[in-house]
Design a binder for these strands. Structure first.
Ligand SMILES: [Mn+2]
Ligand SMILES: [Mn+2]
Ligand SMILES: [Mn+2]
Ligand SMILES: [Mn+2]
Lengths: 218, 218
DNA sequence: TTTAAAATTTAGACAAGACTAAAAAATAAA
DNA sequence: TTTATTTTTTAGTCTTGTCTAAATTTTAAA
């Protein structure tokens, strides 16, 4: 069995490894977990002892098969709970992450299996992130950052990269959500800012926004 | 904010104080929490510092108003989650307690308020225990232990005193549940064993059973 | 009212997880 | 290829919550 702290480290390492492809550094983990490098070293040594990561001194860490499976299961729980909170309890998409951070550590396979059924086996969470299946399989989805699109290209918003409450609330004020149709009206070469159209309204966004919105191009 | 361990102590003290009326002893807590008396002493000193219990050395502990309110809130959460598990996720009444022990520590007032609405503001949990309202008020219910009934008296089962999985499963095999109509057919003076009738079937139960079933007499 | 037993508290230790400060290793700069 | 900088690890400390063993207090028995 794994402690809450261990589970959080595994999840963080999974996300870092997923984003950057490679094995992850001590500092990267410390940064993500908002803790000190020395604490990370302690923990990754413990996780290596438990065979959930492979690790050599000074060389960073990467999840073993077992570690990945634990991490993915936590992510599955996190996302299912987020669906529950939004679909059943009428939370907004910017309100659920913190609560799901707690709920993801509840230990009961039966619970998750039943929750999944109750929700109708959803494929995506409220932020457009895919929900791993029971075997930990994550269906690969083709999605592109809005920032990669050129003038006149368009697509449907299928997810957000950052999912902080502040960013999600910003999107709400612009009426952008999962499913929104977005078209690039103009793109400034100098700073990558854009004018976009969302359901017949046009407005201006910075690179910081376009780099955090995933579209499925059409 | 209170830690998981602190919350569990407060809950245990509440239940002990509720059952026995009086302030509770170190040993009683140790027994209930399945821990050592010395650990309990440490914790009740900390809880006394935090003003959630009143305590003098060697004299036992009892909850302050603040402590009681925290304990009741945890119990409210526990019971609401149990309702959720049974009503929405189709768990059996003997399967929910352990999971609720985890869920009761999730911190979010908004969550509990929304869960309560979602469940339709239930008054009782699956074991017949009353669910405290938002203000911590627990509606007093008149219920009597089956063991107190005399021959030929009858009532409706409204709760269980013990709620271990084993006991609940025993009740299942006898088709006894919340709402069952139970009549005392015969009562043995010597050992308090009974013959009871539950929906036209008669059978024999020991004192251990009758002391753990609450009835509303009719 | 002494003495014995039981209950409770203290003292000291340990594991988990964090931190700071210092040492060691790896990288980058000169 | 030395030197300087950054990254990572180690050493030592702290807090929370637990434990055992010993001391103290309370309660029960003689
Ligand atoms: Mn989330
Ligand atoms: Mn999400
Ligand atoms: Mn319960
Ligand atoms: Mn219950």
């Amino acid at each position: 069995m794994f402690t809450l702290a261990e589970e959080n480290y595994l999840k963080a390492i999974f996300h870092l490894e997923n984003d950057c492809g490679t094995g992850v550094t001590t500092n990267a983990i410390a940064d993500k977990m908002d803790t000190r490098a020395s604490s990370v070293t302690d923990m990754i040594q413990k996780l290596a002892d438990k065979k959930v990561i492979s690790y050599q001194k000074y060389k960073g860490a990467s999840l073993t098969k077992k570690g990945k499976s634990i991490a993915v299961n936590i992510i599955r729980k996190h996302r299912l709970w987020e669906v529950f909170l939004v679909e059943k309890l009428d939370f907004q998409w910017d309100e659920v992450h913190e609560i799901a951070e707690q709920l993801e550590h509840i230990k009961s396979n039966e619970l998750i299996q039943k929750l999944d059924s109750f929700l109708g086996h959803p494929d995506f969470d409220p932020h457009g992130d895919p929900i791993p299946d029971t075997n930990g399989y994550i269906k690969p989805t083709e999605k592109k950052l809005l920032s990669k699109l050129k003038k006149n290209q368009q697509g449907i918003c299928v997810g957000v990269k950052e999912s902080s409450a502040k960013f999600l609330q910003y999107l709400d004020t612009r009426k952008i959500g999962i499913g929104s149709s977005i078209k690039v009206i103009d793109k400034e070469d100098f700073d990558q800012s854009m004018t976009i159209q969302v359901s017949n309204k046009q407005f201006f966004i910075t690179k910081q926004i376009s780099e955090n919105l995933y579209l499925k191009t059409i």
